[in-house]
Structure formats: structure tokens, C-alpha cells
Design a binder for these strands. Structure first.
Lengths: 339, 339
DNA sequence: TTGTAAGCGTTATCAT
DNA sequence: ATGATAACGCTTACAA
């Protein structure tokens, strides 16, 4: 016997009327503060309220709540490249960490977080691209006006917001060294190749490792892999097809690593046996090809970031916002060791 | 000379004060209705307002706006398995479709949409799992109280909300037929194998195709692939390792197809040459292995769904909510044709 | 052309 | 133990 569909979405007022109490009481009961020292609602009343809410299918409007409290119960993940295994790993970690919490993770894929943070007012935001000119100043302003921000950036200094700092450069240097210990020749797959090397960047670490050993840097072994998996695949394919291809490949992102793996497979080259492949990020230990991917990156990174986000969202300002530095280590797996 | 950081997030009132006008005027100017017939704001005033907003870094609170107007400017995508290429393709399509709009796509990964729809009040929601007992009734109620819903489900009937219906069964039957034309033996990789066949489901179509040709259904060729890529990989690997493995494999989801491709590669089997592999969904024409994946599915599906979402969010009730049926066709590509 | 003011659904401070 | 009520930031008739 479903009752006639109510034409309007149920509000707290309707619940109050149905339960024969005031809206204040409903609010107390439903927000769990019905047993605060100041406000103690009777058990029987509370039950009536809950029944009414249930019957009406009432769920508090987070918008209205946000206007009043400033909190939305939302964790915003602004991710430029959602399909990258790295991004997916973070989403999954945050999902786990928010289980049982009243927080909802929301993902904005390849969107501009700048206006979003202000308009959506999430309880905390994760940002993976803050490299536009005015960003440092903007982040400071946002943080100063109460927004909780967790930014991943190699250069930014914390300034009211948290900064995730990865040991990018040293890590990549280490990975390059590791590969050079095992292979005579190592190529590089990075989005922009080795043109216009940014000091402290990942490609730069590769170049430095070569130079430190007195090895030549061969530009034809360092093609631009582009910003998406399919262009990375083409770049990898072309490189691996060369008669003088390197014995190993180092990919500076997970999506590039995946693509390199695919290209090797397409050419019948067995990773770890015919060709060494290593990736940066350590987002996935096991690839879709079932073999372990040698990688460099932090351990338990995603869990750590997720925990930070949750604690910031909860308003934990015990530890002031600052820099979170993640040491990187090399994980040698089948893709360079063989099966 | 950046001014001292304002301690509070800027509100419409601050903008009004700074510009020396009323909040109403600010609202008019910023929401673009400054040239409505009733409310025409002077050019000079408008400019002053915009300058003030700019200077303060003011962005309207979508929460406050939502309380008033009921609109959040948000498209919610509730996706159970975000890492599935199918999901990622939808996200990308929606992102494209909302470009230039004032809509923001937000992804909720593996979350419970039931309370979310009510609390977040998105302008439209896409739902890919509405198979819990009370869902049909709940969806009706939600739709009746004004929520715009687009639900993908094989069984649900539209009832104030839109239903995306795919020609699942016929499509899979067609794919199975196509494979059986080319290969003598075909295995199946579906999440639950062929135990407890749901009539009208994808595995059922496979079984029917076999039976129609008088071919035996061999359970050992239809293992349960599980709900994630790694278990699918293991299942595919085990199946392909059998001495009596089938000549071709049909995967009922994209993530399973990816896994199968990976398993083949791991065993040194060239898809299209040594083993036929086909997938269901048609989310990606080209795999990370660079070869085309034979697939069955609708054409321009993601674009169509994205367009529907945008038009619903815009409040286009010209066409009443209903069923959107997508014909499926087989796309034969290298993974069954050879390179 | 612009301002006044009511009201959206909540929460929280006070009374009662 | 519960209820009035102001306030949150914004939009929108309507008045000026």
C-alpha cells in the first residue's frame, strides 16, 4: 500500500508535523545530538521522529545544512587524468577510508578546481594540478578563508594548506640507476620527452643518471609519449620497433607504463625477459597482464593521503597544515626480473 | 601588493558593499539576468560589481543557491566500478558534453546513490545499479518529488525517470553467433560463470547460441571471472592454460575483456591469431595493446547518454522521461580477425 | 535602473 | 525535554 507519491521532496518541517514535534526536535534527533547536555530528547519522541522520517523517505538537504554549518560532508577529489591507475588507486583508497564515516567522496575529472572549491564548499579537497601562475596565491587565499586543501605539487610550499610532496627526482634517479645496473641501455617514456628539461623533474633524473655513468643520452630513445594512453602506446610501439631499441624502458607515469606493457605484448616481446619495463608511481603492483611491474614510488601512499583527507575533513587541525614528504623506493618485480 | 587575506569566504554581501550596490543587484549581474525585461542593470554598475567580485575572488555558494532554487549545477554519476573502461568512457563523454555549460559532472564511485540523490540534490543523476528490492518504488518516489534520474537497468520500467535499456541479450547472442561462425569452440568469461543463469542475461545468450547449434555447453569453459580485473585475469589465465582450451573467448564486460587480453599476452598467445577474444560494451575500440577489440554494443552510446543527461539537467521535459533503447551491433576487429 | 524584503531548509541559541 | 526563532547566503517578486 504505497501512499500517494508526495509531490514535493520531504523537508524537515514535514517530518516535524508528521511526528507532532517542532523542527528543532527533528534536527536534534536526526543529527544525533539528541543526547547533548543541553538538549536531551525523550526516547519515545526520538522514535516517533525517526519513524516519521523513515516513512517520508526524508534525507536532510546537504545544501541547506551547508548554508548553515559550512560543512557539506563531501571530499572532493580533483583529478586531471581519472583513467590513470594512479588516480583510480587514490579514489579507491579514499572510498575505503570514508567507509563508516559520514563523508562522501566525489570525483571531479579533468575539471577546473579553482571555482569548484568555492562553489561546492567541500570539507576537504585534493588537488593534483596547481601549476598555473596564480595558484599559490589563490590556494593561500582559499585556505585563509577556511577551505581545507591538500595539494600535490613538487614546488609549492604549504601555506595554510597541506602539500603532498613526493621524492620524485631522487626516486626516478634511483630507478634509472637500478635499471642501468641490470641493463646496458635504457630508454625513457615521458609525456614530453626530454625537450625542455625541468630541473628536478623525472626526465631530468633519468638524464642525470646516464651522465653520471658517462653514458650518452640518445634523444631517439626518449620520445614524447603524450598525455593519453593511446599516444603513449604509439610512442612505445615505435620505440620498441627500432632495430637499435634499448634493452629496458622507464615510464614516468602509470598510464605510460601500461601502454609500454601493451606495446611490448603487441610485438611479442615478453616483459622481464625480452624487454625490461619499469614504471613510476607504484600505484599497482600487479598489472592487467598478471605480472608484477617494477616501479618506484612511496609505500602506502594512497592510504596515507586518504587518511589525511579524512582527518582534515573532520576538522582535525591538531597538526597544522604542512608538508607531507613521501620517500620513494624501488620495487623490483617481474617486468624487469623475468618470470 | 596582495591585500591582507580576508578571514572569511567572500559572500554576495561583501561584493555588494565593495561595489556600493545592493545584494540584489549583485545577484542580477552575476547570474547574467542583468538584462531581463524586468531587471536591467546599468552597464557601469554591472562593471563595478564584476570588478568587486573579481577582486574578492567571489564565487556564489552553490549550496545557498540550491536552497533557494533547487538547482545545484551538478550532474552526478553513480558508478559501481569506476575503473571499468565502460565507466571511464561515460565520464569522459559527460565531461565533453558539459563543456561550456554551467554544469559540473561529479562522480560517486561505488557509493550508495539512494541517500546521495536526496542529500546532494544534483540536477540529474545517472545510476548504473538499481537492482535492490525497493529500488523501483524509491526511484518513482524520487522522480515524483522532482529529482531527475537516468537509470540503466535491463528490467526497470520508466516511471517518471528515464531508463537506459541495452539490447544486451540479442547483442550477446549475436556476438556468440559471430564467434561460432569463425571458431569451433568458444568459452565464456562472465562475473558469475553460468551458474544460476538469469533469463535474458548475457551468459544466457551465450548458452542459447550454443544450444541452437547443437553444441555442448562446457562449464569448464565458463569460469566465474569475478568482480574485479585481477580475479578476471586469474580466471582467464587458468582457462587459457588448459590443454583443451577453446579457440575463442567471449567476455561479458570490458574489464574482463581487458583481463583476458592480458592473460593471453602473458601466455604468449597473440589475440586474433592464436586466440580469439571478444568483449561486450564497445567502450573502447582500441585497447592498450593497440589492437582493435572485437566487441558488441551500441554505437555512440556514451555520447547519447551524456546528451540525455545534459538535457535533463537543463530541465528539458519536452520529451517526457521514458525508455531509451539502444540497438547493439557487432564490431569485428583485430582481436578475432588477426592483425 | 536599483533597492527592499521574503523565503528556501537547515542548525543552534535561547526560552520555556 | 521541547519549542520559537534568528541566522546562514542566495534569488526573486515587487516596490520605488
Amino acid at each position: 500500500m504505497a501512499q500517494a507519491a508526495s509531490p514535493r521532496r520531504p523537508t524537515i518541517r514535514m517530518v516535524a508535523e508528521r511526528a507532532g514535534v517542532s523542527v528543532a526536535t527533528v534536527s536534534y534527533v536526526l543529527s544525533g545530538r539528541s543526547s547533548s547536555p543541553t538538549t536531551r530528547v525523550g526516547d519515545e519522541t526520538a522514535a516517533r521522529v525517526r519513524d516519521a522520517a523513515e516513512a517520508l523517505g526524508y534525507v536532510p538537504s546537504s545544501a541547506a545544512r551547508a548554508v548553515r554549518t559550512g560543512r557539506t560532508g563531501t571530499v572532493l577529489l580533483s583529478l586531471t587524468m581519472l583513467s590513470d591507475p594512479w588516480s583510480l588507486a587514490l579514489v579507491e583508497a579514499v572510498r575505503r577510508a570514508t567507509r563508516g564515516t559520514d563523508l562522501t567522496p566525489l570525483v571531479a575529472a579533468d575539471a577546473d578546481w579553482r571555482p569548484l572549491v568555492r562553489s561546492l564548499q567541500p570539507d576537504v579537497v585534493f588537488i593534483d594540478d596547481a601549476d598555473r601562475p596564480g595558484d599559490a596565491a589563490l590556494l593561500r587565499t582559499l585556505a585563509a578563508s577556511g577551505d581545507r586543501l591538500v595539494v600535490m605539487d613538487p614546488d609549492l610550499a604549504p601555506d595554510g594548506f597541506d602539500v603532498i610532496r613526493n621524492d620524485d627526482h631522487a626516486g626516478c634517479r634511483l630507478l634509472a640507476e637500478t635499471l642501468l645496473d641490470r641493463y646496458e641501455t635504457v630508454g625513457l617514456l615521458s609525456p614530453n620527452g626530454i625537450a625542455r628539461l625541468r630541473p628536478g623533474g623525472r626526465p631530468a633524473a633519468y638524464v642525470e643518471a646516464l651522465k653520471a655513468r658517462g653514458l650518452p643520452v640518445r634523444p631517439e630513445w626518449c620520445p614524447a609519449a603524450g598525455d593519453d594512453e593511446s599516444s603513449a602506446f604509439r610512442a612505445a610501439l615505435e620505440l620498441l620497433r627500432r632495430a637499435d631499441r634499448p634493452q629496458a624502458l622507464m615510464a614516468t607515469s602509470e598510464y605510460i607504463g601500461q601502454a609500454a606493457l601493451g606495446a611490448a605484448g603487441a610485438l611479442g616481446l615478453r616483459p622481464g625477459t625480452d624487454i625490461g619495463i619499469a614504471s613510476v608511481g607504484n600505484a599497482f603492483a600487479t598489472t592487467s597482464r598478471g605480472l608484477g611491474m617494477t616501479s618506484v614510488g612511496p609505500e602506502r601512499f594512497f592510504e596515507a593521503v586518504a587518511e589525511l583527507l579524512v582527518s582534515r575533513a573532520a576538522g582535525d587541525d591538531g597538526t597544522p597544515p604542512g608538508e607531507h614528504f613521501f620517500e620513494w623506493q624501488v620495487f623490483e618485480r617481474e617486468s624487469t626480473l623475468g618470470a
